[in-house]
Design a protein around this nucleic acid. Structure first.
Length: 488
DNA sequence: TGTTCATGG
DNA sequence: TATCCATGAACA
């Protein structure tokens, strides 16, 4: 049988066992506060009505209403684009994929000073999104207060997973206001706590297992190194002490990750420049980045684009030379053979663009690390009859509904499986793996998650895990995550 | 049905 | 050679 030779059983086994374990997780489901959801839905509806009333009197909205009459609709991007770019003659900031002027949040946020209705419009859109995509669906999909969403292993091009009904993998988090509202609805079962275990920098580490760039391996393994901070220093021409978390964030997302995914300097420069202007980014000592760059000779956008071009050149031709070579090899090899192989035994075929060829094997294998860990953690749970249960998975993290007395044990096992056992089985993982843990106190919602660290056992309850509680005057205090007592 | 927008990794 | 992978809502 010829076809049999095309099947790689490493990949087959992983998906077979993965499917079984994910179905058990779907069956467990995640507990929600149904009464809270219903109450919040009504509350937000009131807020939206109030906001809609408030913007009715704004001059721009009057023009909008007059031109569309009965068809006037705040949810229509087409109408908003017509208002902003045709009637008010505003220069578009971004274009859509099809080349039309865009009205997405990033493009209209910078108009809010000249057009105050924009700020309320953005808030209305956010709240509507929260209700329609999240809260309403929580209420629709729950059975006796439990959400049994699906986790699929057959829908993505990269052999990652996906989730639907509800999508457990895109619940708001980055925006604290939205994150807090919706995550307040997600709660542990009675007297339990929610725990999330995250692989730190998983894709960057898995990428290193492919390209084996010595500079990147150093970045990952040497303590105290921080490539995002270093990139911020180069992009904004700063001393290390002048880098704020905001500047590091911009460098990380608009340059480093964008470059890893295959972006190029002109696009990066545009995005960074937009951030500088929109958020009026400053150095740690409070100097405006715009002025600071100007002092260094970068006065116009064109100057900045040239500067980013030179940062990009050093990034790939001096710093990550081996990584760059690997990308070229991957693309050449695909053009010759038509396939891309993953470390985990999967093969990608079919028509792919260059950036897909470079990213698929990384994205897929990174998720497979998570899936492998999930399978083995769940086996331990079942074999040892733990009452704690795995309730979800978000690409590089595992969410568990934990019985407090089992927390020490769960953390111990998870750490062993996710960072040690996996490397015994997959020797292609040539860099250390690391996990981060966040948890909420018993009976608290997911909105209250805090990072927890290993410490000495709590005198009241014996838990070894504590979180830092912020006090006045930059002081912190360690508290036990199970009983809340101060630990030493 | 296609486009645009939002959310997450 | 031009930012990777998803789900889902709403409009046109």
């Amino acid at each position: 049988m010829k076809a049999i030779s095309y099947i790689d059983y490493r990949g087959y086994d992983l998906l077979h066992k993965g499917t079984e374990i994910l179905s058990q997780i779907e069956c467990n489901g995640i507990h929600i506060d149904l009464e809270y959801c219903k109450k919040k839905l009504d509350q937000i509806a009131d807020t939206i009505r109030e906001l809609e009333k408030q913007i009715q009197d704004e001059p721009e909205v009057k023009i909008w209403m007059e031109s569309y009459g009965r068809k006037f609709n705040l949810d229509s991007s087409t109408q908003l684009a017509d208002l902003l770019f045709n009637r008010l003659k505003i220069e578009p900031v971004n274009m859509t994929e099809k080349g039309n002027p865009s009205t997405d949040e990033e493009s209209i946020e910078c108009l809010k000073n000249d057009h105050p209705f924009i700020e309320k419009l953005i808030q209305i859109k956010r709240l509507k999104k929260l209700c329609s995509t999240y809260i309403s669906n929580f209420i629709r999909e729950q059975v006796d207060g439990i959400l049994h969403n699906f986790f699929h292993l057959h829908t993505t091009q990269t052999y990652r997973s996906s989730s639907s009904d509800i999508n457990f993998q895109n619940i708001p988090d980055r925006n604290p206001e939205l994150g807090n509202i919706i995550r307040r609805a997600i709660i542990p079962r009675q007297d339990r706590m929610l725990l999330e275990l995250d692989y730190s920098g998983l894709e960057v580490r898995v990428a290193a297992c492919y390209h084996k760039d010595p500079v990147m391996i150093k970045e990952i393994t040497e303590p105290g190194r921080d490539m995002h901070r270093d990139t911020a220093i180069e992009l904004f021409l700063l001393n290390p002490n002048d880098v704020t978390s905001e500047l590091r964030f911009t460098a990380k997302n608009s340059f480093v990750f964008a470059q890893f995914y295959g972006d190029y300097y002109a696009n990066c420069a545009k995005n960074i420049w937009n951030s500088i202007l929109l958020y009026d980014l400053k150095t740690r000592t409070g100097v405006s980045i715009r002025e600071h760059l100007s002092d260094k000779g970068i006065k116009t956008y064109s100057d900045f684009e040239n500067h980013v071009k030179s940062v990009e050149y050093r990034f790939w031709n001096e710093k990550f030379r081996v990584y760059k070579k690997w990308k070229e090899n991957m693309w050449d090899n695909y053009q010759k053979t038509g396939v891309v192989n993953m470390h985990t035994g999967f093969i990608c075929r079919g028509l792919m663009r260059r950036n897909q060829v470079i990213n698929y094997p990384v994205q897929g294998a990174a998720f497979h690390c998570l899936l492998w860990s999930l399978i083995h953690l769940q086996r331990l749970f079942l074999r040892n009859h733990l009452r704690s249960m795995i309730v979800g998975q978000i690409h590089d993290s595992i969410v568990i509904d934990v019985v407090p007395e089992e927390l020490n044990c769960v953390m111990n096992w998870a750490h062993t499986i996710m960072t040690k056992e996996i490397r015994k089985v997959w020797d292609w993982i040539i860099v250390p793996l690391d996990i981060k843990a966040e948890a909420s106190l018993p009976n608290e919602s997911w909105a209250n998650k805090k990072e927890i660290k290993l410490g000495s056992p709590c005198r009241s309850c014996g838990s070894e895990w504590s979180f830092k509680k912020k006090l006045e005057e930059n002081n912190t205090e360690d508290h036990c995550i199970v009983c809340g007592e101060i630990t030493e």
